[in-house]
Design a protein around this nucleic acid. Structure first.
Length: 588
DNA sequence: GCCGTTTTCGGCCCGACTGTTTTCAGTCG
């Protein structure tokens, strides 16, 4: 497992960019991008499939030619075609595409006429007012290019996309402004925000209103905007101080459903729906569904789906990853909701790095309607968090027993988030672990082991008799740290063999497991624990981000460990233990 | 470059906004 799917996808994306600059057939370019997108969201490892000699042409968007290229990439780590094209075109041209206002056509023009090879050249040419002389460019374009260069420069890689809580705040203050406008009938947030992607590149707001001009006026004069990027009759776009873009689109009430569907995307989902429509001679656009000249649907999303013979599909599923096929065979999942959650299986207290006491956390969890929480402070190796050694853990166990005496309808489970060493052994002895209800294991050091070693480290830990949940299984920090190089399929298989569950960590910089692995675990019969990993009272509410991620991973109530009642979950934990080990916490 | 219940060839989603085009190309989503 040397080449990752994401690396293969990047090669195809890069090739597509170059081909587009060379003005290659647009459908060929599209084929590479479609293939890249599909490979990215593929749970199986392409490299592994190649090694096993599996037929890649069965994958969506992969034909004979791309299958051969995939094999080539897996075997050599390179794609000769990409290297050839890099001989002809400077690599810096790709960077130019990141600049707004500049697309492939203009990159070609800039390269051929001004010899521009990268952002530095472009900045120089624009300052010397050379760019405005080219056909299709003018002073405005030149000015915008300079602005864009500054924006791209000032941006750290993590800044480009925001995590969900940040977008929520932005959305809230904008909606407060727009909802005041007379004639506004509906406002909805669309785009990747509505699909609850891990990060959001820009925010799409959809408004149903009879007088679009007032909405446009109010929106472009919003106090948080530092620049108006576009100002049209029904669509406008602003940039906030952070560099984040917000688009507003106004449509008539009778088109709202079609527009919401269209602006929610994903692009691949929308395209698939339109193609289905075409087969029935229906044209689908953001104004509705049209048969001949007649509009036959559009007020609601349900109406539009119904026209192509589909039930309503939840936004989190709209990635064209099999949801349309599932809908056609009446096999859509009944997605998990926050209301299904009965408890939280990963929280910290002030005994280690948490900011609230054991009792405070328990009371807050009970107030949220939970039946149980598991206290899972860090183990001793994590010294900077004052990780618990066996003595301190024993004290905590006593404290939990005492606290549980005070509840009649709620139970605190005894747990630990124990560190997994490089050799796969655990940071605490079996003698103390057996006194716990729940052992959550995680990796906090040696993130960069080679894939095979990291995978074996985790598999060895999964075989430990007291291991129950693997916390933040891939260790990624979104925008900051890549996931470990692990073979997730092998880990999920080992989890199944050993009766273990995987965690979906709800911290918004983790959201680990990723959606595609949630789906893979579900399909392989491995349960998921959706956990807050709360370090404070308010962080208990992060659970809802775990839920939306779980929904993106097609998870249903039966797939989720902590959607079980206290009795059920205690029974599962009991079954998972060696027969000789004593009973522990008793129910209320 | 992919794909196929009209097709192995000839299609491939659709529209808004901007700037510089005087009728539309390029970009974006």
């Amino acid at each position: 497992m040397v080449v990752r799917n994401s690396e293969i996808a990047d090669i195809f994306y890069e090739l597509a960019d170059f081909l587009e600059i060379e003005a290659a057939n647009q459908f060929r370019v599209r084929a590479y991008r479609t293939a890249a997108r599909n490979i990215e969201s593929l749970p199986q490892n392409v490299a592994e499939m190649v090694d096993k000699g599996e037929d890649l042409t069965g994958l969506p968007g992969i034909g004979k030619d791309l299958a051969a290229k995939l094999a080539e990439i897996v075997k050599s780590g390179r794609l000769p075609q990409l290297e050839d094209i890099k001989q002809r075109l400077p690599a810096g041209l790709i960077d130019l595409l990141r600049i707004g206002e500049v697309g492939p056509r203009r990159v070609k023009m800039l390269h051929q006429n001004l010899g521009i090879t990268g952002i530095e050249d472009l900045e120089k040419a624009a300052r010397e007012q050379q760019v405005r002389k080219l056909p299709g460019f003018g002073p405005k374009a030149e000015e915008k290019i300079l602005e864009q260069i500054n924006r791209v420069r000032g941006m750290s890689p993590g800044e480009k996309r925001l995590r969900l809580p940040a977008v929520e705040q932005i959305a809230q203050s904008l909606v407060e402004v727009l909802v005041e406008i007379s004639g506004v009938k509906r406002i909805d947030l669309a785009g990747s925000y509505r699909r609850k992607q891990e990060t959001v590149g820009d925010l799409d707001i959809l408004v149903a209103c009879e007088n679009p001009s007032e909405v446009m006026d109010r929106f472009v004069s919003y106090g948080g905007a530092i620049q108006v990027l576009e100002r049209g009759a029904t669509r406008s776009s602003i940039m906030l101080r952070s560099g984040f873009h917000v688009d507003v689109r106004v449509v008539p009430d009778e088109s709202f459903g079609a527009a919401l569907l269209y602006f929610t995307g994903s692009k691949a989902h929308s395209i698939a729906l339109r193609k289905m429509g075409m087969k029935s001679n229906l044209k689908i656009n953001e104004y509705g569904v049209f048969s001949g000249g007649d509009r036959v649907a559009g007020a609601t999303e349900q109406e539009v789906y119904a026209q192509v013979g589909l039930p309503y599909i939840e936004p989190e599923l709209r990635e064209n990853r099999g949801e349309i096929e599932a809908a056609l065979r009446d096999g859509l999942p009944h997605l998990i909701t926050l209301e299904d959650i009965r408890g939280d299986l990963h929280i910290h207290t002030s005994a280690t790095e948490g900011r609230a006491t054991l009792k405070e956390m328990a009371v807050a969890a009970r107030e949220r309607g939970y039946q149980y929480i598991a206290v899972t402070d860090h183990s001793r190796r994590l010294a900077m968090t004052r990780g618990l050694n066996e003595d301190r853990l024993s004290e905590q166990i006593k404290e939990i027993d005492e606290l549980n005496q005070t509840f009649s309808d709620f139970l605190v489970l005894k747990g630990i988030e124990v560190d997994v060493y490089e050799d796969g052994s655990l940071d605490l002895s079996p003698q103390i672990l057996e006194k716990l209800d729940l052992v959550v294991c995680s990796i906090h050091h040696k993130f960069d082991l080679p894939g095979e070693k990291q995978t074996q480290r985790i598999i060895r830990a999964l075989r430990h008799p007291y291991f129950i949940v693997l916390a933040h299984p891939t260790g990624r920090i979104i925008g900051e740290r890549e996931p470990y190089e692990v073979d997730m399929e092998a880990i999920i298989r080992a989890a199944r063999e050993n009766g273990c569950a995987l965690e979906l960590n709800s911290q918004t910089d983790r959201l680990d497991l990723a959606d595609i692995y949630c789906k893979m675990a579900k399909e392989m019969g491995v349960k998921i624990a959706i956990s807050s990993d709360a370090h404070s009272l308010s962080e208990l509410d992060l659970m809802r981000y775990g839920i939306t991620q779980a929904r993106r991973g097609w998870l249903e109530k039966p797939d989720v460990l902590n959607a079980r009642s206290l009795e059920e979950i205690m029974e599962i934990f009991r079954q998972n233990r060696p027969a000789s080990s004593p009973a522990r916490t008793s129910g209320p």
